[in-house]
């Protein structure tokens, strides 16, 4: 354990990776989370081959069929069908594509823009920092879902606008984290050495500072990813996200709502898959934090 910070292999990427992996895999929860995420990613990727049915196909002879373990259920529709006879399992499998890819885009956008703004704020300080932090304060003053809803109303409901809205709402966390990390690192000796040897602003910001600020950002990225899945589903549920008949998890819930009394499966499974996915990502995030952040280690 104590060998982790010995200067034996500084800069050796494989050494760092091995040390990271030994910390990460020490947590059973994190491993379970990782395995689940990989599984659901594969399912989403190979959805057309994995799903038993076409997610849009309506079987008029099989409306609201219960899951297979009920009387009247059939192996043809393992998790039952919805009100217009579409296979719920297939819709969930295709829904994973939307939830995961939109959320991944959200993280990429808000992390990319957030890191850039945070680097600017922390590196240059002065009025640039004031402007950036004030604008982020304004974003934070609104409840996130409300701001996202308002933005979607401006941009007109749909997949792209939901993505942009949620990315904007997530932005302040990345900006704040990057800025704080940059300020902490900026006057360390390796940065000064790099500056004295003639590195320019861009090189200092992106090559010298950024790699040393990544640990908290990676943890935040997993958190953002799970929040994005929840927010996308919430927007879909409120009818402001991905529009029907797209098999998005939140929109599926909204559609099934009126059959709550008669067909519990149509409500239960979409929510359950949202909960499981978010829970597993959060489990993985906890493991990542323990492995990447020495201050939080073994608390």
């Amino acid at each position: 354990m104590s060998t982790i910070s010995t200067p034996a292999a500084p800069g050796s990427f494989r050494y760092q990776l091995a040390s990271f992996w030994s910390d990460f895999s020490a947590s059973r929860g994190a491993l379970v989370g990782l395995i689940f995420i990989v599984f659901i990613l594969l399912v989403a990727l190979f959805a057309p081959w994995v799903a038993p049915h076409d997610p849009a196909m309506q079987d008029r002879s099989a409306l609201l069929v219960p899951p297979v373990w009920h009387a009247g259920g059939s192996w043809n529709y393992i998790l039952g069908t919805d009100a217009v006879g579409r296979d719920i399992l297939s819709r969930l499998i295709f829904g994973a594509r939307y939830s995961l890819s939109i959320s991944a885009m959200v993280v990429v956008i808000s992390m990319g823009v957030g890191i850039f703004l945070g680097l600017l704020a922390g590196y240059f300080r002065g009025w640039i920092e004031t402007v950036i932090t004030r604008v982020m304060d304004v974003v934070l003053a609104f409840p996130s879902l409300l701001l996202a809803l308002g933005l979607v109303a401006i941009l007109s409901p749909g997949l792209t606008s939901a993505m942009i809205a949620i990315a904007l709402v997530q932005l302040p966390y990345f900006v704040r984290l990057t800025r704080a990390a940059v300020i902490g690192e900026k006057n360390r000796e390796y940065v000064i050495a790099s500056r004295l040897s003639g590195a320019g602003h861009l090189r200092l910001m992106f090559n010298t500072l950024l790699p040393n600020c990544m640990a908290p950002l990676i943890v935040q990225a997993t958190l953002s990813f799970s929040t994005a899945i929840l927010d996308i589903a919430a927007l879909g549920f409120l009818g402001m996200g991905v529009q029907p008949p797209t098999p998005e998890w939140g929109a599926m819930l909204a559609n099934a709502r009126e059959f709550m009394g008669s067909a519990y499966w149509a409500v239960t499974f979409p929510g359950l898959i949202i909960l499981l996915t978010v829970l597993m990502i959060n489990l993985m995030g906890d493991g990542l934090r323990d492995a990447l952040d020495p201050k939080m280690k073994r608390s």
């Binding site: 009394g261 409500v267 979409p270 829970l279």
Partner: peptide, 22 residues
């Protein structure tokens, strides 16, 4: 509590309605 933290509350509400109300 991690499960509660990961909860899509709109679904949670529907589940509780189905169980306790319906």
């Amino acid at each position: 509590s991690l499960t509660g933290y990961s909860m899509p509350i709109f679904w949670w509400g529907l589940l509780l309605i189905m169980l306790f109300s319906s």
